[in-house]
Design a protein around this nucleic acid. Structure first.
Length: 278
DNA sequence: AATACTAGCAACCGCCATTGG
DNA sequence: TCCAATGGCGGTTGCTAGTAT
C-alpha cells in the first residue's frame, strides 16, 4: 500500500500550462497568496490542476524575479564549485544564483555542463596517458597518483579538497599548500585562488561563506520558499587545495576534479571557461 | 521535402522530511 | 508518540524545436 496521491489524477489537467491557466494562477496568488496550502489552492483558484503542479509552475516560471536565458560564466563557476562540494543539491546551488531555480540549474547541468565536462575529460585522457584513474576521496587531498617521479619529470597529482586547514598541513608529499603548476613550477594555493582561468572554483570565493549563507541565513532558492536547508550542507569545506596532472606540458594539462558523477576524476582543461559556448 | 536524430526544458513522479493535530 | 497531510526535492520523462541526412 502506497500513500494516497496528492490529488485525483483522473480529474486534473496535466501537461503544459496554457496562458489562461498561468494568468489565473498568477492573479489568484497576487490577490490571496498561496495560503500556505498548495493542495487546496487550485480548487480555490478555479484551476483543474494538481496542487503540486501549481506550486511547481509558480515557483519555476511565474514567480516574479525568475531569470531565464543563458547562464553567465560566473554562474557556471558557482555551479561547478558547489556541485563539487555537495553534489546534486540543486536547491542549495540555486539559492546562490539570483533568479535561478533548482530545476533550471539541474537542467543546465544535465544538458550543458555535464556534457561539456565529459567531452573535456575524454579529450584530455586520450592525450595524457599518464593521467591516473584511481579512485579519490573528494574530500581529501591526496598525494601523487603514481609512484614518485624518481627518474622522470612526469608528475601527476590529484586535485582534491581538504576538509580543514589542519588536514592540509598533515599531508605530504607533495606539500599540499604548494602544488604543481606546470612543469618545474610551484605556486602557493593562495596564488591559485587568484587564477580564475585554471582554478575558477578556487578563486571564486570562500566556499565556507557560501555554505554559511545557505545554511545560517536560510537563504532559499526560488523553489525553496519556506523550506529549511538540510543539515547535510554543513559538510562545508573550509578551504581547498589542488593540483593538476603535470607532465611537463604546462598549459596542455588539465585540472583533475571529482564531480561525483560516475567517474572518479573529471578534468577541466585549460581554456575550458574561455571556450564556453555563448 | 521528408524523415530521423538530438538537445533543451517544462512538467511529472515518487520518495523523504516536516508539521500539526 | 503516532500518524496523516503537505511541502520539498532530485530523478526522470516526454514534448517540441532545431539540425542533420
Amino acid at each position: 500500500m502506497g500513500r494516497a496521491p496528492c490529488c485525483d489524477k483522473a480529474n486534473v489537467k496535466r501537461g503544459p500550462w496554457s496562458p489562461e491557466e498561468d494568468e489565473t494562477l498568477k492573479s489568484y496568488i497576487h490577490k490571496h497568496g498561496t495560503g500556505g496550502n498548495w493542495i487546496a489552492l487550485p480548487g480555490k483558484a478555479g484551476l483543474r490542476r494538481c496542487g503540486k503542479s501549481c506550486r511547481l509552475r509558480w515557483l519555476n516560471y511565474l514567480r516574479p524575479g525568475i531569470k531565464h536565458g543563458a547562464f553567465t560564466e560566473e554562474e557556471d563557476r558557482i555551479i561547478f564549485s558547489l556541485f563539487n562540494q555537495m553534489g546534486s543539491r540543486w536547491s542549495v546551488i540555486a539559492s546562490q544564483l539570483h533568479g535561478r531555480t533548482d530545476n533550471d540549474v539541474k537542467n543546465y547541468w544535465n544538458t550543458k555542463l555535464k556534457k561539456k565536462l565529459l567531452a573535456a575529460k575524454i579529450s584530455i585522457t586520450s592525450t595524457t596517458p599518464t593521467t591516473t584513474t584511481s579512485p579519490i576521496d573528494s574530500q581529501t587531498l591526496l598525494g601523487p597518483t603514481t609512484s614518485p617521479p624518481s627518474t622522470s619529470n612526469v608528475q601527476n597529482y590529484y586535485l582534491g579538497f581538504s576538509t580543514s586547514p589542519a588536514q592540509i598541513s598533515l599531508a605530504s608529499p607533495p606539500m599540499l599548500t604548494n602544488v604543481g603548476y606546470g612543469y618545474g613550477q610551484t605556486v602557493n594555493i593562495q596564488t591559485l585562488k587568484h587564477d580564475p582561468i585554471h582554478f575558477p572554483f578556487l578563486g571564486l570565493t570562500n566556499m565556507s561563506e557560501i555554505n554559511a549563507n545557505a545554511i545560517n541565513s536560510h537563504s532559499v532558492s526560488p523553489s525553496q520558499e519556506g523550506s529549511s536547508i538540510s543539515g547535510s550542507s554543513s559538510h562545508a569545506l573550509d578551504d581547498k587545495c589542488g593540483s593538476w596532472a603535470s607532465n611537463g606540458g604546462g598549459e596542455e594539462n588539465g585540472v583533475l576534479m571529482d564531480f561525483g558523477f560516475g567517474f572518479p576524476h573529471d578534468i577541466i582543461p585549460p581554456g575550458f571557461w574561455s571556450s564556453r559556448e555563448s
